[in-house]
Simulated assay, not measured.
Amino acid sequence: MSTHDEPEPESDIAARVEVHHANDRVLDAPALRALAHPLRVKIYDILSQYGPQTASSLAERLGESTGSTSYHLRALARQDLIRERPGQGSGRERWWERPAGGITMSAAGAAKTPAARAVTQLVTGEFFRLRQQALLDFHDQAIGEEDDQWQDASLISTATARLTPAQSAELTHRIMAVIDETVERYRNQEGEDVRPVTIRADVFPLPEIGGVS
């Protein structure tokens, strides 16, 4: 019997995911404080999802002045959250990019004080708000504007299972392995039909309800 059809052991998947994210940046308190502004979170998000931008292109997209976006870009760059793209742009037009790789915002060491926890909650809350708004915008647009091909290729789904912590961890590792492989393979893909696609994954326990075991 061929072993190619056998599922990969969970220990191997977990190890592969751990290695893949071993170099993820853990944002410290100064980096989180630099992000603790709604416009900076939006700028960071655009650079993450759409690639390099200039202060002018960001200003046009966000409805802000070029002076404002330039100021916030410099603030993000001081904490190495973004960097100037080498070999692109000329004169006063500078291109900025977000370095490749994952980040972690909820490290225990970065939230030891009430002030640090408040900053962490502000930044993560704004990121979640932007993600939710993007989902709602797609839903509204897909009803009458998005073409059938992209509607058929998209997924918005919610399911519930009753799991132990170990089983939840196994599910998380499997999902992350698929996401990591896809991002690694297609990170820089270009082509006529290529668009940025956001990949969402939420796995978390629901609150306990009295009388339900």
Rank of each mutant, 00 (worst) to 15 (best):
L130M: 06
F128Q: 14
I103E: 12
E181Y: 05
G144E: 05
E184A: 15
I209G: 01
S154R: 02
G89K: 02
R185K: 15
R94I: 10
P165H: 14
L130G: 08
A166C: 00
T182H: 13
I199K: 00
I156L: 14
K112T: 09
G210L: 10
N188G: 04
T164G: 08
S157Q: 14
S168L: 10
Q149I: 11
I175M: 06
I179T: 11
T160C: 07
P114V: 03
L122G: 01
T113G: 08
L122F: 10
V119A: 08
T172H: 02
D180E: 09
D202Y: 11
G125W: 09
L163C: 11
L206S: 13
V203R: 02
S168V: 04
E208Q: 14
Q167N: 06
Q151A: 04
V183H: 09
R185H: 13
L135G: 09
S90M: 04
G144W: 02
R195A: 01
R92K: 08
G101K: 08
Q88N: 03
G125I: 09
F127H: 10
D147A: 07
S90H: 06
E184W: 00
G144F: 01
Q149Y: 08
Q149P: 01
G211D: 09
F128G: 05
F128E: 06
R174A: 12
G144P: 00
E146G: 00
R200S: 15
P205K: 10
E184R: 03
T198K: 06
E184Y: 03
A115S: 11
W96C: 08
R162K: 11
K112D: 04
T120H: 12
M105R: 01
A177R: 12
I175H: 11
A115Y: 00
S106N: 09
A201R: 05
T120D: 00
D148C: 03
S90N: 06
A142Q: 05
R131E: 06
E208Y: 11
F204T: 12
Y186E: 10
H139I: 15
A118K: 08
E84F: 00
Q121R: 07
K112W: 01
A166K: 07
F204D: 14
G210T: 12
V194F: 04
V197H: 02
G91D: 04
Q132A: 14
F128I: 03
I175P: 00
L130K: 14
P196A: 11
V194C: 03
G125K: 08
R185S: 12
N188C: 07
A166N: 02
G191H: 10
A116V: 00
N188P: 00
P99N: 15
P196M: 14
S168R: 15
D147L: 06
A166Q: 09
A134Q: 10
Q88L: 12
Q121C: 07
D202V: 12
A100I: 08
R92M: 02
T164L: 02
T158R: 14
N188E: 15
E181Q: 13
E181N: 10
R117K: 06
A111P: 00
T182P: 01
G89L: 01
